[in-house]
């Protein structure tokens, strides 16, 4: 065995525990749901104990199902509004501004980090109180002090509200990554550009931004993936309602699998999500021209 072969073997050995654990408890269940998606498996009724193979029937039904398309659309706006725009813009702004030697820098930093540490059930619970209808609810009362009449936030603007709440939860992770990315940009380059007469905006646009592109890519990939898979806090906050206005894909799968008890159909939704995310992953890699 050559030295290189031995090293390769050792590296594989190091990775083995991860492969086993992720393979058994993440990849295998995902593959199993491909199998389930080809059956009429259910949680109640005869199909619970004796599922039948139904071929692609679940998929055919899926593409004709308005509820499914609705949940894809809701998920799209949710990811775009919160992960791609809301968290990213506010996180980047915070990261850029907190590079200044401001007086309350550490306090502000801590406050922004706080929501990120809030467990999903608590996040749902807090925001129910914030956004409840009626003039006693927290937000309405605060706005009432400014003379703004009460709004039924979760009833009238449900999708916007879950975007607001998820942005709230995620500013910190965007800020952390962007701070790190910015710190890797050599100060001398920016200074040189400034001395050459570039405006701060130009420095940011033409020097800083290209240099933090790899960080942005990592952020976009990870936050898109984790946002698509969100379930817990929307479940605690709106359970997908009113109607199906906030029925993101995770809630839709839950409703199909555990409210309508149709495991096979719910699994088909999960499989389609997986395929779509592969496409999104490819788009990111191509569009941002970054290699792993």
């Amino acid at each position: 065995m050559t030295y290189h072969q031995r090293t390769a073997r050792q590296l594989q050995l190091l990775l083995l525990p991860c492969v086993l654990l992720v393979g058994a408890l993440v990849v295998y269940p995902a593959l199993y749901s491909i199998y389930l998606s080809l059956t009429n498996a259910s949680l109640v009724g005869v199909a619970a104990t004796h599922p039948r193979f139904v071929g692609t029937r679940n998929y055919v039904r899926l593409f004709a199902d308005g509820g499914f398309w609705n949940s894809l659309a809701v998920t799209f706006w949710f990811v775009l509004g919160s992960a791609v725009i809301g968290q990213f813009v506010l996180g980047l702004a915070a990261a850029v501004l907190l590079r200044r030697p401001l007086r309350f820098k550490h306090l502000i930093n801590s406050i922004i980090l706080l929501p990120n540490a809030v467990p999903e059930v608590v996040a749902g619970f807090i925001w129910i109180s914030m956004l409840a209808g009626g003039d006693h609810a927290t937000l309405n009362r605060l706005l009432g002090a400014l003379g703004i009449p009460p709004v039924r936030w979760l009833q009238d603007f449900p999708l916007a509200m879950i975007i607001v709440v998820n942005t709230w939860r995620g500013i910190a992770s965007a800020m952390i990554l962007m701070t790190a990315g910015l710190s890797a940009v050599p100060g001398e380059i920016r200074e040189a550009a400034r001395i050459d007469g570039a405006s701060p905006r130009q420095v940011f646009r033409f020097i800083t931004l290209p240099l933090i592109m790899p960080t942005i890519f990592l952020y976009m990939l990870v936050s898109t993936v984790t946002t698509i898979s969100i379930f817990g806090f929307i479940y605690a906050l709106t359970r997908g309602g009113p109607g199906n206005a906030t029925e993101i894909i995770g809630i839709y799968i839950y409703n199909q699998s555990f409210t309508a008890f149709q495991l096979g159909y719910g699994s088909a939704v999960a499989v389609v999500t997986l395929i779509l995310s592969l496409a999104i992953g490819l788009v990111y890699v191509r569009a941002l021209k970054v290699e792993v």
């Binding site: 109640v44 199909a47 619970a48 104990t49």
Partner: peptide, 11 residues
């Protein structure tokens, strides 16, 4: 109303 469905599943 849930009994019939659970019985049909053999639970």
């Amino acid at each position: 109303q849930d009994v019939a469905d659970m019985a049909a599943a053999g639970y």
